[in-house]
Design a protein around this nucleic acid. Structure first.
Lengths: 201, 201
DNA sequence: TTTCTCATTGACCGAATCGGTTAATACCAT
DNA sequence: ATGGTATTAACCGATTCGGTCAATGAGAAA
């Protein structure tokens, strides 16, 4: 890709990124037209081809960017060193909402890329997401100290419960159109507190 | 549509239905090619146009069919007259898995249709899904008899919890590729029992 | 076999769309 | 004016699309 892309004002860079995320999220790779991306970004198709040599380059650039941004957002929140499972989940969702404010279709784009099968990009696509394919199957519950939970509580089921409900929240955020994000956060916080009262000693 | 479609052996009808569901679920209306649907159904494009005059007719037929099938599946299970909230949820998920066995992409198709904006079909599309648009915003909890639940339990939060977790299950079923459906049902049953022990007196 | 019926198809058409190129602009500082 | 850079309109060849139609195939009836 053309290094001059980074000289553009950040707002314009983001417009292009978001246009790409959105189009590639709604269509398969082959059926995502460059002209549609350009139109949505508010630039001409020619300019888009000026910054990115071809569609494949733009696609892989978007994927690499999504990966980097996600990683930086997650490490930004203290969601990893948090020892409280509930607060960890909360921080995770907080990070995701922050991302969705700035890049509304990025996660949908990443999810679709995960299943993209077009041979034109598949090979180099895998190299980027490969580290995460193993990680995703890691549904095993983190180490939980039984002492702090109520006696006789099935920790595995509890974790299933909060994990799936959180997944359900994310799902609603993505598929239920544009909604009041701050409202979602407040609701989720309520749920977290409900769980803590319910499951913690 | 051509009434002779119903004369086809049921297996062939379903192949065509499922091919349509899949293609229209993965692409927008405009970018769903008839030839791709025919290929996936194992018939020629000409034959597809013999049974359905044009793309619009096929699309609306699929939508109407999806609506009817869903309604019949839901009324098939006793999920409405069930008074136990947990068993109601369980029956609901059971019905959905049954559907996904026979029509794997139907619900994904219906969801995408819900947000389809193409003016060629939007008008008549709305007429079909309009009754459900109001119903979907109905997140209010059903009438719950507080007596059977543990004292001091926040019923609204409990319902949020189980509703979202169930949503999370559905999400996993649709987006996590082909998985062992019976395994999913067993896991969900476990979760239901966990909730009953947790929330019921 | 011949004939009739009807499901099914390959070949085709005009129009639109696609990825990508290029030569020309608009803009702005010197 | 001049030079350089950001940006675009116009264009191209190839492909794809929705849809049509004449022809083929298969099976039952004669």
């Amino acid at each position: 890709m053309n290094e001059k892309f980074y000289n553009l004002p950040e707002e314009k860079q983001n417009r292009i990124l978001n246009a790409g995320f959105r189009v590639f999220a709604n269509n398969s790779y082959r059926k995502s037209p460059m002209n549609e991306i350009a139109l949505e970004a508010g630039i001409s198709k020619s300019l888009l081809f000026f910054y990115f040599r071809n569609k494949k380059e733009l696609y892989l650039f978007l994927l690499k960017t999504a990966e980097e941004l996600t990683r930086s957002y997650l490490s930004g929140t203290g969601c990893y060193q948090e020892e409280d499972v509930f607060e960890m989940m909360y921080q995770g969702l907080l990070a995701k909402t922050e991302m969705m404010k700035k890049y509304p279709d990025m996660s949908a784009f990443a999810l679709r890329a995960y299943y993209e099968e077009d041979e034109e990009v598949r090979g180099e696509l895998i190299k980027i997401i490969e580290p995460y394919t193993k990680l995703s199957t890691n549904t095993s519950l983190p180490k939980l100290d039984p002492c702090i939970f109520k006696d006789g509580l099935d920790l595995k089921m509890m974790y299933q419960d909060i994990y799936l409900a959180s997944e359900g929240y994310m799902y609603q955020m993505q598929h239920r159109g544009p909604i009041d994000i701050d409202r979602v956060i407040r609701d989720y916080r309520e749920l977290i507190d409900f769980w803590k009262k319910q499951y913690l000693k």
